[in-house]
Each structure stands twice: as C-alpha cells, then as structure tokens.
Write a protein that binds this DNA or RNA. Structure first.
Lengths: 194, 194
DNA sequence: CTCCTAAGTCATCGATCGGTGACTTAGACC
DNA sequence: GGTCTAAGTCACCGATCGATGACTTAGGAG
C-alpha cells in the first residue's frame, strides 16, 4: 500500500494538489473530484476535512501565498528582489505562474478578491513602501510600482506578450532601475547578479 | 409585446448581454441560460444563432474590444490618452472594468489567451511603440509601459488596492509623466486637463 | 484475538450545465 | 383569409458538479 492512514499527511497532500489545480485551472475549472483523484482518495473525504469546496480553496491558497521577501538587506535592493520573486522565481509548482497572478483567474468570488488584496497589500506593498519614504504621496507611489511588477508578471505568463515573455532578468534590470528612480525620486542601485 | 420578431435585433441584444455577463462573471460563471434570460428569450435560441457557448463568447468579445485610441494627436499625448481610456473611461457597460481586464477572468481557455494577446499587441502596444522610437530595445520598453497601464487597471478594479482605487486621473498624471520619461528617454508632456 | 475509534469509502441525491431535435407561432406576401 | 417561411419555444438528454449520510475497514490498545 502506498500510504498509511495518516490524517495530517492526507490533508497536506490534498492541500498541495488543490493548490496546483486551483492555480492552473482556476476555481471553477477545478472539481473536488479532480483534487481527490490526484491524491488517490475518495472525494467525500475532502468535505469531511474542509467542509466545502470553498473551504478547500481558502485553506489551500492561504497556506501558499506568503513567500514574501524579508526586508533583510538594504532597501535599495528591494525592487530587484521583488521583481525576481514575482516574475523570475521558479513557480513550476503553481503551473508556472506566481500564485497571485494565478489567483486572478479565480477572481469574481468576493473572498478571493479580498484575499488577493490582503496578500498584495501586506505581502508586497508594505515592504515596497519603505522605498517611497519621504515622498508626499508615499502610498500612491508604492502601489504604482506594485502595479508595474504585477503587470509585468501578467503580460509574461497570462497574456504571453512576445518580447516580455522572452526577456531575461538582465534585460529588465536597467529599466527597473529607471522606473524605480522615477517613482521614488532617488537612485535605486540594481545589483548586477541575482 | 416588448419586441417584434427581428433576428438581427435579437442577435445584437444577446451579444450585448453576453458581453456584460462574461465581463462581470467570467466564462465559467456565465451560463447560456443566464444570457438568454436577460434578453427574455429561450436558451435554445443561443445555440441556433451562435452554435455553442464558445461561439457566443468569441463573437461577444470580438465585437467589443476595439476601442483603441487613434494616433491622431501628437505622440507625446498618447500615454495620457491610453491611461484615460484603459483606466478612467466609463466602462459601466462592462461591469466597471476595461474589457481587457475583464477578459483576464476568463483566461485559461487558450483562445481567450490568444485573443487577449492579439488585442493588447495590435490595439495598444503598436500605438505605444511610437513613443519608444529611437531606443535600442524599443519593443521591450513598449511592453513594459503597457504592463504598467494594465497593472494599474488591475489593481484598481480587480484587486481594489486602497490608494489607487480612489486616485483620480489628476493624481496619476505627474507619475505617468515621470515613468514615461524614464522608459522612453524623452520628456513626455502630460496635458493638464483631460 | 478482540474491540473500538477514526480514517476512508460507497451509493446517491438534487441541481445545473451545454446541447439537440421536434414543435409552435408570428408576420409578410399574395 | 390562407399559406409559407423563419423566429422563437418546449421537452428532454447525458454529463458533471457539490454535497450528504450510512457504511466499511485499518490499526493501535487492552
């Protein structure tokens, strides 16, 4: 037998497969039977553990989405770090897209929208806002820069724009520096090697 | 009776209601019965006119999405015009979102992705690329600016970020100029009043 | 070995979906 | 008014979905 009867292990495997399915196919495109089938378990078990499909979605995406870079280094390196994390990290576990980009597919459900906003605000904008310190409209500048990073991720993975899809991190680096300086009003050195 | 028997008129009303539904609820969240119900017609009529739900979607989104600003004025005013059109135009007909932002909800279907890419490239990036003329990596700069505009639209409507949601066109104007100049390497005057 | 609890399964329900084909009816034309 | 065509309707199919409750079985404790 492949697996012993271990509630927590089965729960964890369900969450992992659910995460992948929801990211790749969206909320509506994923059925409870799909997820249970991936794990090799009866669909009814999902409802025993998570109450509903919605509960499965909430818990799957909640445990997934906090890979936020820690503001450990100098603040000037934050844009490059966030760009790398949001766009160039290996998100193969989530079907090649950053979870936040993937979650846009499942928007429309109001709780998904709320979760998205919360994760973007607390996970990214709060960190980025250090860069805007000292400017009069700090929050707006921060969100505008966040919008840029998110837009880059979307054009690359969800839309598949020709040039940006093939661009490397090196290609984006000089423009990242230029835009960051334009928005934050101070030079933002970009490290040469990630 | 509210309406006479007019094939073309009924067809047009179906397309209009389908556009709204698909934009607001996404492809999966919209049923043929919903659209037919809005028009006050039998669902079977949809299949008689459009063959399938997919055909309805294609024709509804195709007829909708070409409100591309004409490059009639000076090229320097293009960023402001596109920002206005993409973000601040009245898209109440599409549930308050630009159709392209709304179409992201229905991504996952490969033809939707293709249509998105085509419309963004031909409708927006081609126009914007005039601004990048003379730069070495013209296409990349153009797509990066397009990514920014798209990201702003998404953060405003789909995510609902606090500051950007309430920002006016006037608030964004100076930052638009700064980023455009940073990306395109030349001053981009922003008109004072839209 | 026995028993008992919890992990997991089975059968099934009710609703909804996209889609099809036979049918009905409105309305222009003679 | 009668008739013929096309616009629109009706009844229904097969599949799939989320969800429920009764059931079975694995496996440690005694």
């Amino acid at each position: 037998m492949a697996h012993k009867r271990d509630r927590e292990a089965t729960r964890a495997r369900l969450l992992e497969c659910a995460r992948l399915r929801f990211a790749r196919d969206g909320y509506d495109g994923t059925s409870v039977r799909d997820v249970a089938g991936d794990v090799g378990v009866d669909p009814a078990l999902v409802f025993r553990y998570f109450g509903s499909k919605s509960g499965l979605f909430t818990q799957a995406m909640a445990g997934s989405s906090a890979p936020v870079v820690l503001p450990d280094g100098p603040v000037e390196e934050l844009p490059a770090k966030l760009l790398h994390q949001l766009v160039f990290e290996d998100w193969s576990e989530y079907a090649g897209e950053h979870p936040l980009v993937a979650m846009l597919r499942s928007a429309g459900h109001e709780d998904t929208k709320d979760r998205l906003r919360q994760q973007i605000c607390e996970g990214y904008l709060d960190v980025l806002s250090q860069l805007a310190e000292g400017n009069e409209d700090k929050n707006l500048r921060t969100e505008l820069f966040g919008a840029w990073l998110l837009g880059i991720g979307i054009l690359r993975t969800a839309v598949g724009t020709p040039t940006l899809s093939k661009a490397t991190e090196e290609d984006l680096r000089p423009h990242l520096a230029a835009v960051a300086e334009a928005l934050f009003g101070r030079p933002v050195p970009v490290p040469k090697n990630g």
